[in-house]
Computed example of a mutant assay.
Amino acid sequence: MHLASLLVMAGDAGRALEHAQAALAATPDHAEALAAARDAARALGDTTRAESYARILRGFGEEPRTPDEPVPGFGPRWAAETDSEELDDTEEPLAIPEGFTELEPEGLVEAERPRVTLADVGGLEDVKARLDAAFLAPLRNPELRAYYGKSLRGGLLLYGPPGCGKTFLARAVAGELGANFFALGLNDVLDMWLGESERRLHDAFAAARRAAPCVLFLDELDALGQKRSHLRHSGARNVVNQLLAELDGAQADNEGVFVLAATNHPWDVDTALRRPGRLDRTVLVLPPDFKAREAILRHALEERPIEGVDVAKLARRTEGCSGADLVHVVESAAEQALQESIRTNAMRPITMRQLEQAAQEAPRSTKAWFGVAHNYALYANEGGQYDDLLAYIRSHKLL
């Protein structure tokens, strides 16, 4: 409770709520902790949770305080709801305890509910099957999960060339479950102050555990969990160590928190992150095949004016393109049609000629990635971790 009061004075209502909840876990009927949790939730804008704590207080015969009334041991009022103009002339400003610095209020990573599902993902049937076996099927079948002792915790690493749908897949998994989705990027974690990055990472995992079942998505894992042997500064190594600890769930249970990570450079990811119990399953997300390219092109052209377009023919001519490349082809063709409409002063649809020209001029963004990846697949294939990548390279003659 004392730590929560210090956090309140520093304006950090999110962490204050976390510590007030820890106090309630030990003593559920602690009136001051309930009042603090209620006011912290109110300061964060979570009116539903604030009203829940208020109802419990009323059940104990406590009169709920208004936001401007003092919380015992928590200073005059919440800093986030105080204007300097509202302070009484006789009231002293909040003092920051010695040894503490004033902090700016920061929110936790916000959860969202994606509307896309795996049905919206074109192709990638093997990847969908792996995702279904790892998390979706056990969640849909609790009896089978209990029979086989299958846990709802775990992690899966998606890797492959850029623009092939790794982030979209992660959102589709959350949408398939109707679960909360937390997207954790570098800007959500890294901070210039020593120890702050580790705290942010811990807070993100704590928010995900409270919202379970959920999907926690770690984008660009090679930057967040880079090999510690490549890192010169202890601060960066500490972030990797904190991520390892959070994935282990040593201090809290990760049941119901499914961690999905994505990277274009799996060979740069710290090997400890990929051991069993952490990101122990790896799935290669390859460029879309013919059926997937056809589905992506149809979706990209769906609400655009077209004339004489053979989508199947276009899909055959765009082998090696990523999903992002295909969308770029359609955008380029739309730009040509727009320019032609301006020149002729008449609305012109997108034609097959424009799409074929755009496809011919568009670079294959996956080519450079395979140029680097094949060296790792050939010479750094420890334990067969890149067998599927090597088989694809050989079958498509990318060596």
Rank of each mutant, 00 (worst) to 15 (best):
V215R: 10
F205Y: 09
E104V: 14
P67H: 11
T263E: 01
E104L: 15
H202E: 06
D310G: 07
R42M: 12
Y376W: 15
L301N: 07
T271V: 14
A13P: 02
R317F: 05
P142I: 14
G178K: 07
D68P: 02
Q357P: 00
K367E: 15
G99R: 03
R209G: 11
A358W: 02
N241Q: 14
G371Q: 10
S234F: 01
A208E: 10
V259E: 02
D268T: 01
I342C: 02
W193F: 00
D325Q: 12
G61F: 13
D253F: 01
E176I: 05
A129V: 12
R275T: 13
G160D: 04
R274N: 04
S151L: 10
E104F: 10
E198L: 09
A261V: 14
N238M: 14
A245P: 03
A250N: 11
G107I: 05
M1Q: 11
Q357S: 13
L389M: 08
L131H: 11
K313P: 00
Q339G: 03
E102V: 03
I342A: 09
G175P: 00
C214T: 04
L57F: 12
P349Y: 13
L3Q: 06
P161K: 00
R364Q: 07
L7M: 15
A380Q: 15
A25D: 13
D120V: 03
R353H: 11
T90D: 12
R145S: 11
A236M: 04
A373I: 09
V127W: 04
T282Y: 01
G75Y: 06
L108A: 13
V269W: 03
T351D: 09
L144K: 11
A295Y: 03
E106W: 01
A179H: 01
P97T: 10
D325N: 15
A33F: 08
A334S: 15
G277C: 06
P349K: 06
D126F: 05
M352Y: 04
S197C: 00
E98W: 06
D253E: 06
P105M: 07
D68C: 10
A359C: 13
Y159K: 02
R304W: 06
L34M: 09
K291L: 11
T318C: 13
A346K: 13
V8L: 08
L231T: 01
F60G: 05
L279A: 07
L177V: 10
A119L: 01
N187A: 08
R275D: 11
G249P: 12
T66G: 12
F60P: 00
G154L: 08
V329I: 15
P142C: 08
V372N: 03
A292F: 09
L186A: 07
P276L: 05
P138I: 09
V269H: 02
R200S: 01
L136Q: 01
G235F: 00
P349Q: 06
S52W: 08
A373S: 06
D222H: 07
F168K: 03
G107C: 04
E51T: 15
T167M: 11
D83E: 12
L260D: 04
L338C: 10
R274I: 08
A262I: 06
N141Q: 13
L326N: 04
G163F: 12
D253W: 02
E382W: 10
G163R: 14
